[in-house]
Design a protein around this nucleic acid. Structure first.
Lengths: 217, 217
DNA sequence: ACAAAAAGTTAGGCTGGTCTAACTTGACGA
DNA sequence: TCGTCAAGTTAGACCAGCCTAACTTTTTGT
């Protein structure tokens, strides 16, 4: 299980990503109300755990795993806010702090029930969209978004033309295959894949044609 | 603010008191799923903080302050259970664990709103009574239940007869007076009171005629 | 161009809550 | 009467997460 603190960091990073702002150490420190060195330390831990990546001076970025978790928390948060306003008639300026505590306490089951009870709302009382449960949780994403080292299942292979399709097929990239990115060279360099145990090196544009479906978090 | 862990200990001690069982170190360790020495250490802390008393081989007992806090938690717990079953239709065997996490997350305001929303239920889905909010929180209790050193306000003075009433009045024990127990001798021995700054020593049965109202937690 | 401010990190320390190992104490049956 | 067992405690360690102080690196204003 993930700690409350870790969840808070991930959630706040996602909020910043959604707002298009970089998740810098200082910004996170301000928002999470902790000292800067605490953020430094935590980001290192999160990176070790494969939940964020962070290059110096770029701020933190969520990995697919990190984003999945963060999105789940944001979903909880916004569903709870909706409940607090719609059902308990709590003043909107009060619900954020309240939901921030609730979001850690609810089980997945309770979240689903709350969602159904509220009629699967699409947005919270502030109008912010509520991330989707199932779909977001193990989304079908492009192979390009897959983290190095994480295995995923191919759910669809597109192609430009017949030759292209044949090429992709020759690599073993077909629906149901298990694919792992073992290396990704910088500057749009070649990508090394493991497809059902067979290693191959391809150009990065290949990843745009392959849709994957990650194993559970 | 009180930590989750402390709240759990207090709540569990109250559950045992309600069931008429002694709150021994081992029993608490079992129920709270921690090692015995952890309970030992925590009980010492709780005693230092004036939330429990504990004599060797007697188990822990809640002080009035401790009981007030524990009761507030139990109230939350049972209100949340009621909500989970009545509103979210969660299976009854699942609600305890869920409520155990929620009870720490709700603000007082949220608890009150939930209570009103549920229509001020008197008992939870298991039929266990839900402690009352305001009333229980600063109950009118007998002076006998007051902890040594805690000031309280006299809310009512009963008496056997006129002479007795005159005697109590001569001590300064009248509605509105501030009373503190400064010492209580063992084996139903004399009790030393401070009544509006005047010190007096009385027999323990006097405390049965005086109803008090403690200051807020 | 360079000093000052801002951002980030390292080092080292604290706290709350937990643990295991080992000791003490009291009860109880052979 | 004594060995054994249960209950409780002390001692010592660990961990997550936080802190401050002090250092380095980067950005920015003049």
């Amino acid at each position: 299980m993930i700690s409350e603190s870790v969840a808070d960091y991930l959630t706040e990073i996602l909020r910043l990503e959604e707002a298009g702002e970089p998740a810098s150490t200082s910004e996170l420190a301000t928002r999470l109300q902790v000292a800067r060195p605490s953020v430094s330390g935590m980001l290192r831990r999160l990176a070790d755990d494969g939940l964020v990546t962070y290059a110096p001076d770029q701020g933190a970025h969520l990995t697919a795993r990190g984003r999945r978790r963060a999105r789940a928390m944001l979903r909880r948060h916004r569903l709870v806010e909706t409940f607090l306003v719609n059902a308990l008639a709590m003043p909107p300026e009060q619900v954020h702090a309240e939901a921030h505590r609730w979001e850690h306490a609810l089980s997945d089951d309770a979240v689903d029930r709350l969602d159904r009870w509220l009629g699967n709302p699409a947005a919270d009382p502030h109008g912010t969209p509520i991330p989707d449960g199932q779909a977001a949780d193990r989304a079908h994403a492009g192979l390009g978004a897959l983290d190095v080292g994480t295995p995923a299942r191919v759910s669809r292979v597109a192609s430009r033309d017949a030759d292209h399709a044949a090429y992709l097929a020759s690599l073993g990239l077909r629906r149901g295959a298990t694919v792992t990115i073992t290396e990704r060279r910088p500057f749009a360099g070649p990508v090394t894949l493991d497809v059902d145990g067979r290693r191959c090196v391809v150009g990065p544009e290949v990843t745009e044609y392959v849709t994957i479906h990650e194993e559970r978090p």
